[in-house]
Write a protein that binds this DNA or RNA. Structure first.
Length: 263
DNA sequence: CGTATCCTGACC
DNA sequence: GGTCAGGATACG
């Protein structure tokens, strides 16, 4: 699933493909993308220029010459594919961007949950987001302040983009494994020391993935048992203590952790 | 807090 | 052919 490191990698691909270029056409090919980006919005993009592509959490923001912003969120299975305008769309291509120079940027998304939306100048398309997981402003003091008074398990808090932006289900489990903290622990009961460890665990998970995009991004062929320490390793030995990794469900999502060394 | 919704492919 | 997976949002 694309989380902050994978979206950062994707944004770089999009920048290399189309930053500074003039849009020729944009087409939404799937009903759910057509709902998000109606025909009149898509058609109004012709002739606009992609001035810059920014990333915030898991959001990609295409800043346009007109002052408008094209907001892209990959959700579960979105990804960019770069080609030329004569490349036919794939079965899973949901939105197709074509540029004046013949470059094509395809949003491929098997589950069709990704969104592309157009926003007028002056509108911030991102919902309320906390600091990026990699940002210095995401520190132990911030985390503890966000958790006080909330009776929510730390795992769920890490998935809340208002607390910290860019973490998804995979790196939430990884970060808590690094921090040696039980995902069920209620946020307001964490010690300052544990908050420090969690922030460090988040940064470690993020920076490891950012440093090895080829190992994580689009690495379906590489088994999770190789890529991760906790995620998707139910029953396999903890890499620290060999205790079998446990899987539980929190807020409808799987959490993986070691009962022995995560307290 | 939990649960449903959106989607489709993978898996039994 | 039923279930599951999951990011974000909406709702009870």
């Amino acid at each position: 699933m694309p989380e902050l490191p994978e979206v950062e990698y994707a944004a770089r691909i999009a920048r290399a493909a189309c930053a500074g270029k003039t849009i020729a056409t944009v087409r939404a090919l799937h009903p759910s993308q057509q709902r998000a980006l109606p025909d009149d919005h898509a058609q109004s993009l012709a002739g606009d220029v992609v001035v810059a592509i920014a990333r915030r959490g898991k959001h990609q923001l295409f800043h346009l010459g007109s002052g408008r912003t094209l907001h892209v969120h990959f959700r579960m299975t979105g990804d960019w594919r770069v080609g030329s305008c004569d490349t036919p769309p794939h079965r899973v291509t949901r939105v197709l961007f074509e540029f004046a120079d013949g470059t094509q940027l395809a949003l491929d998304d098997s589950r069709a949950l990704a969104t592309v939306t157009l926003h007028e100048a002056g509108i911030d398309p991102c919902p309320a987001l906390g600091p990026d997981a990699t940002d210095d402003r995401f520190d132990a003091a911030w985390l503890q302040a966000q958790l006080t008074g909330r009776r929510t398990p730390i795992k769920s808090a890490l998935l809340d983009q208002r607390v910290v932006a860019g973490i998804g289900n995979i790196y939430a489990s990884e970060a808590l494994w690094y921090a040696r903290v039980d995902p069920r622990r209620l946020g307001y009961r964490l010690t300052p020391r544990q908050c420090v460890a969690i922030v460090a665990g988040v940064k470690r998970a993020m920076h490891r993935a950012l440093a090895h995009p080829e190992r994580y991004y689009g690495a379906e062929g590489i088994s999770a048992a190789v890529r991760f320490n906790a995620y998707d390793r139910e029953g396999k030995g903890c890499r620290r203590c060999r205790t079998p990794v446990s899987r539980i469900v929190q807020a409808g999502r799987s959490s993986y952790f070691c009962r022995e060394c995560q307290r």
